Amino acid sequence: MKRLVVVAGLAALLALSFTAVHAAEREPGIAQREPYGIGLEGFAYPYPVSLLPLVNDGEQLRMAYMDVAPAQANGRVVVLLHGRNFPASYWAPEIKVLLAAGYRVVVPDQIGFGKSSKPSGELHFDTLARNTIALLDHLGIAKADVVAHSLGGMLAVRIARAYPDRVNHLLLAAPIGLEDYRMYVPPTPTEKILENEDKLTADGYRKQLETNYSPKIPPEAITPFIDARFNIKGAADYSRWLRAFVSSGQMIYREPVVHEIPLITVPTLFIMGADDHNAPGRPNAPEALRPKMGQNAELANALAAKMAHGSAEVIENAGHLVFLDAPDKFNALMLVFLAK
């Protein structure tokens, strides 16, 4: 039976995902591009993208994904699950690593993200988990090793709990959701978050990524993420994208998974950056509580100790984008774990 590996994260050679024209068009004096569509129409992905029709809450939607075969297959499959702030295209470097190791690689954009449909209703982890299993069924994949980054880690936990017979191994790469953010952050109205997100500028977003994710990332590696988010602002249905994006933030807050992590029965590895202190909603928490949030390496170690088959590796001088900050160490840990 083929095994599937679900991986969510970022890696070092992000520029491989994008064409040279993107960089050229960012130079001063060059005319601005036409806006991307809210399905990232006009934004380059590194491999061909297919679309799976789905119905969520009565709404007809399409889930985008890449399905890439290696030159020499080892009979196993890897699926990569992305974080909240990144389209699936950011997996280009990890796809190359896994292809070289003989894995077939399946890389979806979850509904509400990237090239997938932006629903009119609210996002829920249970729905995203069902969608992911539907994709595996569509591709004839019976079982998976799961590796997930950031928000993808929360989704992977829900998949491992709801569909344990579909998961062989779980690798959580700098996941969020290792604490219940409701313990620190008061509820924030959706309309307030919409207003704040709409006011965010490209420079402000760049500062967020460089400060909250990793100050080590070179500016040119951040630029594609800025493009993917801010060149859709001119799209006619931008407001629908914005509401879906805000819904994903409310999903993180309202649907914690930390209480489920100790109950996971499959072998699980956390790979954390020692400097990862990302904590969604921290600016909205009382000032006295903010320093207590986002102690992610310590949280991962504590949770791994409570699991039947859990372990954690912490990489020094690496942050939330652990696979970008320390790609060689991350890839070595990942490949050894997946080969077990």
Rank of each mutant, 00 (worst) to 15 (best):
H169T: 12
R161D: 11
M293C: 07
E313C: 13
G42E: 01
P286V: 05
P286F: 00
F43D: 00
G75E: 07
L135F: 08
P327G: 06
A148C: 13
E260R: 08
G39F: 07
A156Q: 15
L52D: 11
P189G: 03
D237L: 00
W241N: 01
I133E: 10
L13A: 13
E210K: 12
V157N: 07
E41N: 06
A300H: 11
L209R: 12
D57V: 03
I232D: 08
Y181D: 15
K2I: 15
A318Q: 04
V106Q: 09
K143Q: 10
S17D: 15
A162K: 06
Y253G: 04
A144F: 05
L139V: 13
T19W: 06
A100L: 00
D198C: 06
T132D: 02
G114M: 02
M307P: 03
G39I: 06
P28C: 07
V106Y: 07
R84V: 00
D276G: 09
V246G: 02
L155A: 10
Q32T: 13
A302E: 00
A31D: 08
N284V: 00
A44E: 12
F270M: 08
L98E: 07
M1S: 15
A332P: 10
G102H: 03
G42K: 06
R33S: 10
F225H: 09
Y205S: 04
I261G: 08
L338D: 06
S239T: 09
A302D: 04
N278V: 15
P164S: 03
M1H: 14
Q295Y: 04
P280H: 02
E34D: 13
A244S: 01
Y36D: 01
D203S: 01
S248F: 01
P186W: 05
L40A: 01
L80F: 15
A64H: 02
G281S: 02
E298F: 06
V78R: 08
T201H: 01
R166I: 07
D126P: 07
T265G: 00
E122R: 03
K96D: 14
E197L: 04
L171S: 14
I133C: 09
H169S: 14
A312C: 13
A73W: 10
V322C: 07
A71F: 03
A235V: 09
R76M: 14
P218L: 14
N85G: 10
G249E: 01
E316H: 11
L136N: 03
A156K: 15
P187E: 00
N74S: 11
K207H: 14
A279V: 04
A312W: 14
A101S: 10
Y163F: 05
S117L: 05
V49W: 00
D165W: 12
G204W: 04
G83W: 13
L303S: 03
N56P: 09
I222Q: 08
V258H: 02
G112A: 03
P53G: 02
Q32D: 15
G204Q: 04
A71I: 09
I30F: 13
F337P: 05
G83M: 11
